[in-house]
Design a protein around this nucleic acid. Structure first.
Length: 294
DNA sequence: TGGCAC
DNA sequence: GCCAT
């Protein structure tokens, strides 16, 4: 197998919300195929309920990234070094853009556990069910499925004030089938502008856009800055910023202007794989160095 | 800048 | 973390 790889770190690092661990196995969906994934030592064992191209699997789990080369390029200081060591094998997934869009709109101003519950409910109600062994797995609902249930149905999933945003997103994607695929053709900064400047989707700001581009499109320079990354930057990377920017990183005055200054500085610092650096700093800050107890 | 569905 | 003000 492509090394290094750690399935638990990858699926527990806040980039995906729908994988479920039962005993030693993870149940989830790749494309529209229900799968069971299990890592034993260096082997990734994949069982699917229908034919699934190996290429699709490699792509999904980020196994096509040359992780050692990436480590080499971002291993710039003792802080990132410790994070890379603690979470060695953590990879950035390449998830479905539509699911990623809705997931990260849902993930603002809450915690991961609640996002998991809400998205689980969304999929349970609106998604196509499929069985794997004794585990029931739901596909992520299509825009059409969401539209057919309407706003009331969305509210019942616990989406709260995001319900209308999700409905609106479904309308936009349904009306423009080429929109999400076209972002894949664009470079990171261009795709980012498409998402943000046109104010395409309600609920998609700086951070959510960067998450979508990183986890849904594999734009590996994207550097999403959330509260954990902010904490990490204040704690370990103070020297890269002036005191004004540091104080903004610490509180609510973290505006778009500040976000962009920090983002560009970090991409400049870590280079084209800044997104990987971000994911390790995020996980290290959130879960600590005790990687056995995530 | 403050308020926010569950 | 984003939106509306």
């Amino acid at each position: 197998m492509h090394q290094p790889f750690n399935l638990d770190f990858t699926l527990n690092s806040g980039q995906t919300f729908r994988w479920r661990k039962v005993d030693e196995s993870w149940y989830g969906v790749i494309g529209s195929t229900a799968v069971k994934a299990l890592q034993i030592k260096d082997k990734l064992i994949l069982k699917a309920n229908e034919a699934l191209e190996e290429d699709i699997v490699l792509r999904y789990f980020g196994l096509k990234d040359d992780l050692l080369k990436i480590y080499d390029s971002i291993d710039k200081d003792q802080h990132i070094h410790a994070a890379l060591k603690a979470y060695r094998g953590l990879r950035i997934l390449k998830q479905d853009p539509w699911e990623t869009l809705i997931s990260f709109i849902t993930a603002t101003y809450t915690n991961i556990r609640r996002v998991e519950t809400t998205l689980g409910e969304l999929c349970r109600r609106f998604g196509v069910a499929s069985m794997f062994n004794k585990e029931r797995v739901y596909l992520f609902p299509t825009p059409q499925a969401i539209l057919s249930h309407g706003l009331k149905g969305l509210y019942e999933t616990g989406l709260g004030y995001r319900a209308p945003w999700i409905l609106e997103a479904a309308k936009i994607v349904e009306a423009n089938p080429d929109l999400l695929p076209s972002l894949a053709e664009q470079q990171y900064e261009e795709a980012r502008l498409t998402l943000l400047n046109k104010k395409l989707f309600k609920g998609v700001g700086n951070k959510v856009a960067d998450c979508i581009l990183l986890f849904g499109y594999g734009k590996l320079e994207a550097f999403p800055i959330d509260r954990w990354v902010r904490r990490s930057l204040v704690r370990c990377y103070r020297q890269l910023f002036d005191t004004e920017l540091i104080s903004k990183l610490k509180d609510k005055s973290f505006t778009t202007t500040a976000y962009n200054k920090v983002r560009l500085k970090m991409i400049d610092y870590f280079g084209g794989y800044a997104g990987y650096a971000q994911q390790y700093l995020f996980t290290y800050e959130r879960l600590g160095s005790n990687s056995l107890n995530p």
